[in-house]
């Protein structure tokens, strides 16, 4: 397996300095080239899980192995795209995408590589623009190009389209699907949108909350492009909704209990 997550646990300390389970006993195997969505309600630990694969957050126990190497720190073999495009405002688009390449290859080579990836996200004409001159969707495409330019084995995406409007999001879904088909990257895609996960992924890991656990591992075998299979999508959506309903009720109940106890 390309990515192996074994017996992974994560605890954070709460305000009273007591450990709280955020992720509990996560076991996952992900094959090379798979497009996997991690779906779950807000606060179930999706970002924490993804950050641990990225090497940005250390596990309390358990291990993550990517391409036969144990993850201990961040590395260029795992590119990450965040909800807010974390491109650097003091660099233009070209310089931003070049950032991860600058020590690896000559400037000329790097530029060629960058051009190629800007073309992939359809921003060839914006190489010399600065981030503040771009729309949110364009900024996010720069972030995707930047992550892909270092040719990582895995692309980690944490609600990358969550802050965009509906139209832009739909366009970027199609682009991402196209990029995935072209590059054959393994993609781990965090979202809290059921329809987004069904539209894009081969597999949906449904997570429950408090503590974060894997509720279901669903294979999506609808043919692509999925837009033409509305009925199948709808059916799947209802099934997942049923799974998550209990989780959402749990959150609401807890919040009510919290409010009445105060």
């Amino acid at each position: 397996m390309f990515i192996q997550i074994k017996d992974l646990n994560k605890q954070y300390l709460n305000k009273e300095n007591l450990p709280v389970d955020v992720l509990k006993d996560i076991d996952l195997d992900i094959g090379k080239g798979e497009f996997v969505s991690i779906l779950g309600p807000s606060g179930c630990g999706k970002s924490t899980l993804l950050s641990m694969v990225a090497g940005l957050v250390q596990a309390t126990s358990g291990e993550i192995i990517v391409d036969n190497k144990k993850v201990t720190k961040p590395g260029k073999d795992r590119g990450m795209v965040f909800q807010q495009a974390a491109i650097f405002p003091w660099m233009n688009v070209l310089e931003n995408v070049m950032f991860p390449l600058r020590k690896e290859m000559s400037k000329k080579e790097a530029k060629l590589r960058v051009k190629e990836h800007l073309k992939m996200v359809q921003l060839s004409n914006y190489a010399s623009h600065y981030p503040h001159e771009l729309s949110g969707g364009m900024q996010q495409r720069v972030a995707i190009a930047r992550a892909l330019a270092m040719d990582p084995g895995v692309l980690l995406m944490d609600e990358p389209f969550g802050a965009l409007d509906e139209q832009t999001r739909t366009r970027l879904h199609d682009q991402l699907e196209q990029i995935w088909i072209e590059t054959k990257k393994t993609i781990l895609f965090v979202t809290h949108s059921i329809s987004e996960s069904i539209k894009l992924s081969d597999r949906i890991i449904v997570m429950g909350t408090r503590p974060g656990t894997v509720l279901a591992d669903i294979h999506v075998d609808l043919p692509r492009p999925r837009g033409e299979h509305k009925e199948g999508m709808l059916k799947l959506e209802e099934r997942i909704m049923g799974l998550l309903k209990k989780e959402i009720d749990k959150v609401v109940d807890e919040e009510l209990a919290y409010e009445t106890s105060n």
Partner: peptide, 15 residues
């Protein structure tokens, strides 16, 4: 400095 910039840079091999 936004922690986001630091996180992003670290995933790109900067430290």
């Amino acid at each position: 400095v936004s922690p986001l910039y630091i996180k992003a840079a670290r995933t790109m091999g900067s430290s």
